Simulated scan of single mutants.
Amino acid sequence: MDERELMPIGAFAELAGLTASALRFYDDAGVLVPERVDPLTGYRFYHRSQLALATHLRLLREIRMPLRTIGRLFADSTAEAARLIDEQAAAAAAEAAGIQRAAATLKASLGQASRTTLCALPGPVFAAAVDQVLATTIDDPAYPVLAGVRLEARHDAVSLTATDRFRLTTRTLVPGGPSTASWAGTLAGDDLRAAASRLRRSPTVTLEAGERTLSLRTSDHAAADCRLLTGEFPDHRLMVAAMPPVTHRVTAETRQIRAALAQAPERIGLRLVDGTPSLLLPGAVLPLDATATGPDLTVWFELTTLYPAVSCALGADLMLDLRGADQPTTIRSADDGDLTTVVMPCRPSPT
């Protein structure tokens, strides 16, 4: 060992970007042990070759990697170490995002003494509706409002709507009693997603509208505040009204279509011949136990577009309103309210 490459703890700490007290802590923890300790004075000396390890240690602590994991990471293979770093980075990012959401919600709730109670809904039903529409949101920096869910409360119903410009989903719920006021706002999807687990464990959820948030108050009187997004939500009613008229209608069992999609590849076709519908899979044609109206037609869908609409469907039956091979298809289902999703078809699957 070249004694000239040894340096005292203060000099080493400065080069490594750490404090001397941190180095003592890491020595005691066994993750960065000095090259030599003077037996008389107890002074620690580090070798220049340890700088790389010290730098890695500093960066790992910056992403809040636990010491017990750091010890494993230094001993593991490169692939395993990379996996541990990815896991910790994801956890740190999720924690930071949670802090940002909490801070934004706190700021939005400042000075909101006045609130309007809209209605009460069954907690599990409302949480399921949130899950169903959130599948249609999208994180688009150019259109941040598309990460939100439009909630509209009317006298006899509450509707939740989301769109990613390729799909449009609307879930309508029937409140336990009439809504006391008409109200509309776009809720931050992240806030709804964070609140969903709490909502599904509450028998009822009361909706209370403020100036900048919508509070979801559970049966234990706790409230989850969802921020209101300020961007203009797309006029979904205008989008629906502008669609061509329905030319074909298929009514089928939800269970049968779900089972087919579970084994489908990237695309799946819906074929109508002589009023008989079937699904087109690679090398197979699956007849549907369904009814259909309209002339012969074949429509293709991306699995990633069609599956979420079918998997979230309500009740035992699905109704598909078709408008042509290149026009939007409306998928409807109903059970204690209704769920409507508009999906775009794709080009035919290559043969």
Results as ranks from 00 to 15, higher is better:
residue 236 H to P: 01
residue 151 L to G: 00
residue 173 L to F: 05
residue 177 G to M: 12
residue 182 S to M: 10
residue 126 F to N: 01
residue 191 D to R: 12
residue 211 E to A: 13
residue 149 V to L: 08
residue 196 A to T: 10
residue 124 P to V: 08
residue 146 L to C: 06
residue 134 L to D: 00
residue 213 T to G: 11
residue 194 A to V: 07
residue 238 L to K: 10
residue 239 M to D: 07
residue 130 V to P: 01
residue 233 F to G: 14
residue 211 E to I: 01
residue 164 D to R: 03
residue 192 L to A: 13
residue 167 R to D: 04
residue 180 T to G: 14
residue 239 M to Y: 10
residue 171 R to Q: 06
residue 125 V to G: 04
residue 236 H to C: 15
residue 224 A to T: 04
residue 158 V to E: 00
residue 205 V to L: 06
residue 156 D to K: 07
residue 236 H to R: 10
residue 123 G to T: 04
residue 225 D to L: 15
residue 234 P to M: 13
residue 145 V to K: 05
residue 208 E to S: 09
residue 132 Q to E: 06
residue 147 A to W: 00
residue 121 L to R: 00
residue 221 H to M: 09
residue 228 L to N: 04
residue 193 R to D: 14
residue 170 T to V: 12
residue 161 T to A: 07
residue 201 R to M: 10
residue 201 R to H: 14
residue 246 V to L: 04
residue 240 V to A: 09
residue 125 V to E: 10
residue 193 R to S: 14
residue 170 T to G: 02
residue 160 L to N: 00
residue 152 E to S: 08
residue 248 H to R: 08
residue 151 L to Y: 00
residue 198 R to Y: 14
residue 183 W to M: 05
residue 234 P to I: 11
residue 157 A to Y: 00
residue 227 R to V: 06
residue 119 C to Y: 03
residue 244 P to L: 15
residue 253 E to D: 14
residue 253 E to K: 12
residue 237 R to V: 09
residue 155 H to F: 04
residue 131 D to I: 15
residue 254 T to L: 15
residue 192 L to W: 04
residue 122 P to S: 10
residue 190 D to T: 12
residue 207 L to K: 02
residue 245 P to Y: 12
residue 214 L to M: 10
residue 184 A to Q: 15
residue 163 T to G: 06
residue 153 A to C: 15
residue 133 V to G: 03
residue 176 G to Y: 02
residue 153 A to L: 04
residue 152 E to N: 07
